Amino acid sequence: MNGGTRTNVLETDVLIVGGGVIGASIAYELAEAGVQTLLIDKDNLGSQSTRAGAGMLGAQVEMMNPGPMFELGVASRALFSNLREKLLEISGLDMELQTPGIFRVAVDEEDRQELLARQIWQREAGQRAEWYEDEDLRNILGDNIVGTTYGALYIPDDHQVRNNALLLALVASAKALGAKFLEHTAMTSFLTENGAVVGVQTQDGVIRANRVVLATGAWTGLLGQGLGLDIPVFPVKGQSFLLDSYAPPTPYTIFTHGCYILPKRNGQVYVGATEEASGFDTRPNLGSLAKLSTQAVHLMPSLASLPFAEPIAGLRPGSRDGLPVLGDVPGVPGLYLATGHFRNGVLLSAITGKVMRELLTGTETSVDLKPFALMR
């Protein structure tokens, strides 16, 4: 619903600032726990990186090394099957979970060796990872589907969803459980008392809260400056495009350096994505899209005949060390962060909602949040 003009002070237990899949997941989890929750967003819900993202649940394909990020991704991926059923039951909306798996294609010998090494450590970590030589890959995908490769690592347990479908299911379910949402309600500053955050000022008035969660993606660093905080989160522009297809050429996600191709259940094909340091400029540009389309056609020649649907651009929340920032803010009671997920916001949305629910309800968290603490 719209923010509108308000003169009265709103009050809530938990206020979430930011209405992408991260904020919506937290709102859903808190509402399910019976916590009074209000979420606000300065635009439409999901209008930034959620709208622009591919929707990969790439717990393995996105990870170069073992460590906390890999473990967090695997833990989150494991939640999606049950989460889908719960959201479907509450809201009747399907996140469009697709489970054929992902092929991570090698484009040269160096890439091949890195992927073979990745297969070893991921198997040692208890995850499935299968190697296919080029001929085997062609037998599965067809010669007209994929160009020449140096083999591919197949990740059967990495899946995908459609971002907007996931967001709608989370929001509808959270609303059904009692959470409130205000769109077009921009936070302008924090409310503080005795050093603690007790709410926010918006352009429409004051919202008081016992706890405030910043799930504001690429904008979190800017908002933190209002309290003198150095939150190491910054915008990274990602450009991609959609193609129209009544029948996508393959059910599998095809992934390689700088380019990934995802067939969607609505018949479209998502092709992404660039990584650009361009500040807060969200406009698509011809050069980046031309380079991306050349990569995509080289990887999957059959895409060349598909009609172009639309360009997409959005700002991912990057972080200095590539890890998200999750948890409370030392020295600032009442303030919590859930940001910096970069390319993995959709993948990590499930575990982020869960651990923030645990943190805000005083329950021991499912994963160790120390590697993701602001002061790490």
Rank of each mutant, 00 (worst) to 15 (best):
E130P: 13
V346A: 10
V233A: 03
A117M: 14
G53Q: 08
Q60W: 06
M1F: 11
I207N: 01
L72V: 01
S278Q: 04
L243S: 00
G147C: 05
G272I: 03
T99H: 05
R162K: 10
R357I: 07
L182R: 14
P307L: 05
M300P: 09
V14I: 14
Q60I: 02
Q119W: 12
A152P: 00
A338K: 07
P251I: 13
E275G: 11
L337P: 08
L30S: 09
L223F: 10
K175E: 15
T148V: 12
D158Q: 09
K86S: 13
G334P: 14
A215C: 06
R138K: 14
N344K: 07
A129D: 02
N44Q: 15
S25L: 10
V271C: 05
L87T: 02
V105W: 03
L141Q: 03
K175M: 15
K237S: 04
N194F: 12
S81D: 11
V346D: 11
E114M: 14
R138V: 13
T365S: 06
M356I: 05
T149L: 06
T185I: 04
E133A: 12
L87S: 02
L167Q: 07
Q201R: 13
L116R: 08
Y154T: 07
S288R: 00
H298I: 14
F80T: 01
A117D: 15
A125F: 12
V161N: 03
S288Q: 00
G19I: 12
T202R: 03
T365A: 02
G151P: 04
V325L: 02
S302M: 13
G279Q: 07
V161H: 01
E364T: 14
L326E: 05
G55T: 02
A106Q: 05
V213C: 08
R343H: 07
T185A: 08
A33C: 03
R162F: 10
I155L: 15
T12D: 04
A59W: 06
T220P: 03
R162N: 11
L299C: 07
A59H: 07
L15D: 07
R118L: 12
T220N: 09
A54F: 10
V9L: 02
T148W: 14
I102N: 00
P330M: 11
F70D: 10
L87V: 03
E133M: 08
V355P: 04
N210L: 15
R211D: 03
D230G: 11
P311Y: 14
M56F: 04
G340S: 02
P371N: 06
P317R: 01
V236D: 01
G267C: 05
T192C: 12
A27Y: 08
G58V: 11
D13A: 15
R162T: 11
P251Y: 15
A273L: 00
Y150E: 14
E96G: 10
L292R: 03
T220Y: 03
I120S: 08
L170P: 06
M69N: 12
